[in-house]
């Protein structure tokens, strides 16, 4: 008899607590649901759609014609521009990443150190970032134009056009991208530089390190998180390059500047109109991106542990 009331009393709050916890969970889901719905509809669903497309015979106009695994993948890798576009995209990515990151780090160091022109320099480096990539590409399309551009006469007298040769087209596009993004990456580098405490630099000065020794021995290692972020951003962005080439070169001259995304676009909407093969190419690109990014992050964090 004496033991019953306590048990009953003890059991009551437990069930109350449990139902309250269930209530908490429901409220939580309610709060998360708009974002969850957004992610589901715009990211997860399209991903599954692409995966399904890549395994199906799916012409642009006729729609889904049934499963044909692995024909699309086979067709994708044996596409006559597949190899060339991979090689070109990788080449473009390496060049852009190296030039852009080196330059933006240099600019960041410059605007951090110079006191007098700091504001003006920072602003002028950042101005191009205010322009959309497509607008910037159109601007350069006119600048590079051998007919209407400001350098038209110069090009005519030198017998040279910016976009007329494969090398010229590549470097002209890299120039545009560096101009457009240097300020943005400079800003990221600047944030990284400013997170390094002044005292560490003072200690290095007292320790007698030269400017170069300080840069290599202190700045670069302590900038590693920023370098990881910028490299991942820049590599991913460059591997998915499309707008600038679509506007400036359309893959030309002589199909020399076809990037992977340009190829996907061409296969899907330009002539071949095969969504299945395009989706297969997209899946291959996605896998490659995931592998490359994991490799980059691993490489950077491994060196941090040394």
């Amino acid at each position: 008899m004496t033991a019953t009331p306590p048990t009953r009393c003890a059991s009551l709050p437990v069930s109350g607590r449990r139902s309250r916890r269930r209530g908490h969970a429901a409220t939580g889901w309610l709060y998360a649901s708009p974002t969850a719905l957004f992610v589901l509809l715009l990211f997860v669903l399209p991903l599954f759609l692409v995966l399904r497309m890549s395994g199906s015979d799916w012409p642009l106009l006729a729609g889904n014609q049934g499963i044909n695994v692995p024909d699309n993948f086979h067709e994708a890798v044996s596409h006559r521009f597949f190899r060339d576009s991979v090689v070109f995209t990788v080449k473009y990515t390496v060049l852009t990443t190296v030039i852009l990151l080196a330059l933006s780090l240099g600019l960041a160091v410059l605007v951090q150190e110079s006191t007098r022109w700091k504001g003006l320099l920072r602003t002028s480096f950042l101005v191009p970032s205010a322009l959309g990539l497509a607008s910037a590409s159109l601007l350069f399309y006119v600048l590079y134009s051998p007919l209407a551009g400001p350098f038209a006469d110069l090009m005519r007298s030198w017998g040279f056009t910016f976009l007329g040769t494969p090398e010229g087209a590549l470097w002209s596009t890299i120039f545009l991208i560096v101009w457009r993004y240097a300020g943005f990456y400079m800003l990221l580098m600047l944030v990284g530089l400013q997170s390094i405490p002044d005292e560490v630099y003072e200690a290095a000065r007292i320790d007698g390190a030269s400017r170069w020794q300080t840069f290599v021995g202190i700045t670069l290692p302590l900038l590693r998180p920023t370098l990881t972020l910028t490299t991942v951003l820049c590599v991913t962005g460059s591997l998915l390059a499309f707008d600038q080439f679509y506007i400036l070169t359309k893959g030309g001259p002589d199909n020399s500047t076809i990037t992977i995304v340009q190829l996907i676009y061409n296969v899907a909407f330009q002539g071949q109109n095969d969504l299945g093969v395009a989706a297969a190419l997209s899946v291959i690109t996605l896998l490659a991106l995931v592998i490359i990014n994991i490799a980059q992050i691993r490489a950077f964090s491994r060196r941090a542990d040394d």
Binding site: E202, A203, R205, I206
Partner: peptide, 19 residues
């Protein structure tokens, strides 16, 4: 400059090289 003064300094927050 500091490096030519033959001095060594201990900072309040130590300013050790974290890496």
């Amino acid at each position: 400059p500091p490096k030519n003064r033959d001095i060594a300094m201990v900072f309040q927050n130590y300013a050790l090289y974290p890496h």
